[in-house]
Write a protein that binds this DNA or RNA. Structure first.
Length: 434
RNA sequence: GGAGAGGUGGCAGAGCGGUCGAAUGCGGCGGUCUCGAAAACCGUUUCGGGCUUUAGAGUCCGACGGGGGUUCGAAUCCCCCCCUCUCCGCCA
């Protein structure tokens, strides 16, 4: 199993093993809701095997230590060690070694299976798959375009903001040159988003976008979504599909002071996605591309606060869309479409006049303790050390938001009225002719 | 990329292959003293896991960057990897 990260110290920080032992039926039901509970029985069987082996191994190790100390004490006093005593200690150790190997192997197999289990969804999350998201609310009025709505490609190419053909020549499909006025719009958008999230207590962060495997395993993208991630050829590094990854890893292996929670960060970064399995979907324009920029909110909270934080993040996402004058709706994503790490997810879907439908522009997930366990981000609770909760949400996915701005604020002559809030951040009042 | 130095508890910093989870100092926490505080003094202060347990706890195993090895016994010796620092080279 190449490249699977093994966790330190023999700890198993994944889906709470104790919960699995105590209430396997509950976990089985939760996993079944998400499609597959198959691995659970294997996990339980391996766990039982591990614990049996561990008891034996530890007992023998204790005996080995006792023998070694005895020999050490004798030698220190300058006495002779009785014949055969060292041999006996060696023999015990050799016998133990075989069991230690079996234990290590069983634990490794158990952990590989555990690594593949998704988070347990919130009860309130809707059942079903991709098409079963539940509409929560619809906000804003869909603009009317009696003369027909152009799509973002037509609009942007009209004023020299986009060059897709040359990008294809340079890098292949699903890439774009963003140019001229669109660059200024993007920079204003990012600047505006950073201002909003800063005022909401999120510390802006420009994170590394190349990360180690451990960060991707820790955030739950590996092993489940490995095919979505770009790997580098000569280094063991991966290009992140979202700054959620390096932001989550910011507190990997740390014990956070509860008084410091919630910790809120906003990542500003380019994002890279292979879009494997999306062949033929959304091939036009910059809706689904391999590279885009994003401002991403990320929170570390206590378990008690995470649900409220989730709604808070959703509220910020909505406020931004409202400021930008983009009609949208909020959907509650069904369990089958959550992704491995989320327990609950809301998407904001912007109205895209060029497509005549609502499309996802932002998304916020409560990952509860799933990522925190994998990353060992904890806090003290009395004598206990408990995993924190992590949440993430898009402040602005630049490409898709640009589409929504262009298409919703277009005028018949091909120009685009720039939302007021972006003008304060350097964007022109109008893009294109007139 | 080349040469060298080093990675020990929240921090600083000891540690001859033998009882070291680890001296000492600082910080933190609790206490004595005080009207209160400071100072002083006393105590306490890592993390993961197994088993037992009604609680609280008890007990054992593992962890001195990570992994492997030598040994009756490894923080101490050997190998590989990662990271940090210094110098040289290269570079936005």
């Amino acid at each position: 199993m190449p490249g699977l990260v093994t966790f330190r110290g023999g700890g198993t920080p994944l889906l709470d093993l104790r919960l699995i032992r105590r209430d396997p039926d509950l976990v089985r039901a939760a996993l079944a809701r998400r499609g597959d509970a198959g691995a659970l029985d294997d996990v339980l069987a391996l766990d039982a095997e591990c614990r049996g082996l561990r008891a034996e191994v530890e007992e023998r190790r204790a005996e080995s230590t006792r023998m070694a100390k005895e020999i050490g004490a004798l030698k220190k006093q300058g006495q002779d060690v009785p014949a055969g005593q060292e041999d006996a200690a060696r023999a015990l150790r050799e016998r133990t070694a075989a069991d230690e190997d079996r234990l290590r192997d069983a634990e490794a197999r158990r952990d590989v299976l555990m690594l593949g289990l998704p988070n347990i969804a919130e009860d309130a999350a809707p059942d079903g798959g991709e098409d079963d998201a539940v509409e929560v609310r619809v906000v804003g009025e869909i603009p009317a375009f009696p003369e027909g709505a152009k799509d973002h490609v037509e609009i942007a190419e009209g004023f020299g903001g986009l060059d897709l053909e040359r990008a294809a020549r340079t890098s292949g499909s699903r890439f774009a040159y963003l140019m001229g006025p669109l660059v200024r719009l993007q920079m204003a958008l990012v600047s505006y988003a950073v201002e909003v999230v800063s005022s909401e207590g999120f510390t802006p962060v420009i994170p590394p976008v190349l990360v180690r495997e451990e960060a991707l395993v820790g955030t739950g993208f590996f092993p489940a979504d490995r095919s979505a991630v770009y790997a580098t050829a000569d280094d063991d590094l991966f290009l992140v599909g979202t700054s959620e990854v390096p932001l989550a890893a910011l507190h990997q292996d740390e014990i956070l002071d509860e008084a410091d929670l919630p910790l809120r960060y906003a990542g500003i970064s380019s994002c890279f996605r292979r879009e494997a399995g999306a062949a033929g979907r959304d091939t036009r324009g910059i809706f689904r591309v391999h590279q885009f920029d994003k401002v991403e909110m990320f929170s570390f909270t206590t378990p008690e606060e995470s649900s409220a934080e989730h709604l808070r993040i959703l509220g910020i996402e909505e406020r931004i869309l409202q400021d930008l004058g983009i009609p949208y709706r909020v959907v509650d994503v069904a369990v089958g479409d959550l992704g491995a790490s989320a327990a609950r997810k809301f998407d904001c879907e912007a109205w895209m006049p060029g497509q005549g439908r609502y499309r996802e522009v932002t998304s916020c997930s409560n990952c509860t303790d799933y990522q925190a366990r994998r990353l060992r981000a904890r806090t003290k609770r009395g004598k206990e050390t408990i995993p924190v909760h992590t949440l993430n949400g898009t402040a602005v996915a630049v490409g898709r938001t640009l589409i929504a701005i262009l298409e919703n604020h277009q005028r018949p002559d091909g120009s685009v009225v720039v939302p007021e809030c972006l003008r304060a951040h350097g964007a022109p009042e109008v893009l294109g002719p007139s």
